[in-house]
Computed example of a mutant assay.
Amino acid sequence: MDRRQLLTTFGLSIAGAAVPRFAFASAPTDKRLVVVLLRGAMDGLSAVPAWGDPDFERARNGLAIPRPGEAGGGLALDGFFGLNPELPGLAGRYAAKELVVFHAIASPYRDRSHFDGQNLLENGSPRPYGLADGWLNRSLAGLPAALRTGRRDFAIAIAPAMPLILRGAAPVTSWSPSVLPPPDADLIARVQGLYGETDPALAKALAAAGEAQAAAAGMGGGPGEGFGVLMAAAAKFMAAPDGPAVAVVESTGWDTHAAQAGPYSVLQRNLRGLDGGIEVFAEGMGERWKDTAILAVTEFGRTVARNGTAGTDHGTGGAAFLVGGAVAGGRVIADWPGLKSSALRDGRDLMPTNDLRGVMKAALTQHLGVEPAHVDRVVFPDSAAAPAMRDLFS
């Protein structure tokens, strides 16, 4: 195959107690963007097996996902690529032309530290710790007026702490399921009364937190309930007519150094959770799903071959997903480098041939309507080598 061709196919088929209220007029546009951070480095060749590569089974050395029709086989996409069998929801979205899969893709990071890789992925510069705030926060200042007017907070993080990607000057908030039992209404009323006259700022924050908690009611409890709870929360906030336009949701535990294969492995469980969480979110968004995009990214890929403990180590090229009712999907986009030993980066990694920043830029400019000049100059400085990908959104 011509590795300079884009492979394009069509399938048939309260955080803190100060969570503020979302009390602003509904914007004329209903565009919504969710960035899912897959922390720990997802193995792209397990999530998106490349069966069309003649070296796939040999290179994976015991970790190759079986082909469709075989026992434990994956889900076919385009005759060259497929999906892990734990991703049936995404396969359905692909068939409905709501999913674009990216492969052999990476951020500009080329080393193997989770901390540095995640920092670069979130700060938006070409270097770890190159900027102190996050690219998604910087993008919020360039949102169209219809998405900004009257909003106290433009974005929400569904996370126990504000991730770097959303830190910065633009107003944002966060929410996370509590691990403690909720306080009763009488206690809340007494605390609010106690501070109502002596500390108006705290009283206002308490009232806002109570409203946010009420909005999230019925979504379940602690973090042990998984990624689906977080995505349900994101949908409940964002589906509101005056809900935030942008959200960040974290999924952790993708660092699979050992015992990676098998239906009960951590990787397979994480993939099931990702797939189910996206379906929960889509259902929760209702009519707003048609104007929504989810971008799932990870800090780097993993080694092609199995290591000595039946897992994979930190790598470079990997996979990413763009899914949603606003996505022009049913495609795999990859400038495929091949899995021959001579084609691997450092003799061990999938060679990255596309830049994640190109997808992120497209999500901001083509989907949310952020000015391209603001994206190139402020959001992703020094990124001329990574132009926005085209035609990703309907």
Rank of each mutant, 00 (worst) to 15 (best):
A47C: 06
A76S: 14
G369F: 01
R4I: 12
A132S: 15
P263M: 01
V304R: 04
D184K: 07
Y195A: 08
R302A: 04
F81V: 09
A23H: 09
L392Q: 00
F154Y: 15
G284K: 10
R288I: 08
N137H: 11
S383D: 08
A328Y: 01
T365I: 15
G243L: 14
A208P: 08
A247M: 02
F154G: 02
V229A: 03
V19E: 01
M351G: 08
E98D: 12
Q118I: 07
A201Y: 10
V100K: 04
N270P: 10
P171D: 03
G226C: 03
P263E: 07
R348C: 06
P49F: 09
A141W: 03
M219Y: 00
Q260P: 13
R306M: 13
R348Y: 05
V19W: 02
A141I: 05
D116I: 04
R269H: 14
P223K: 10
A145G: 09
D313S: 05
L368F: 05
L12D: 12
A319Y: 09
A259E: 11
M42S: 04
D335S: 15
A232F: 11
G44W: 03
Y109S: 04
G124N: 02
D291T: 15
G62M: 04
F24D: 14
G82K: 12
G317L: 00
G89D: 03
P177N: 11
S342W: 07
P20T: 11
T256H: 14
Q268C: 07
E287N: 11
A215V: 05
P200D: 02
G74N: 13
G276Q: 11
T173K: 01
F22I: 02
R67W: 08
T252N: 12
A261P: 07
P381K: 00
L75I: 14
G221W: 06
A71L: 04
G318S: 14
L90M: 13
P88D: 09
V100Y: 02
G330A: 10
P88I: 06
D346Q: 10
L75D: 13
V280F: 07
G221M: 11
G277Q: 01
D153M: 05
R302P: 02
L322W: 01
G224S: 00
D275I: 06
A146I: 01
A185I: 15
K97W: 01
F22E: 01
P54Y: 04
A15D: 09
A305R: 15
M1F: 13
T353F: 00
M389E: 15
T198K: 10
V280G: 08
P28F: 01
A71W: 00
M238L: 05
L99Y: 08
L90Q: 14
Q213S: 14
Q260F: 08
S46R: 05
T316G: 00
G82W: 12
R357N: 04
A215L: 09
M360W: 12
G193C: 06
T309S: 15
R58K: 06
G338A: 04
L147G: 02
N61S: 15
D55C: 10
P28A: 14
N123P: 10
P352Y: 02
A207G: 13
E86N: 07
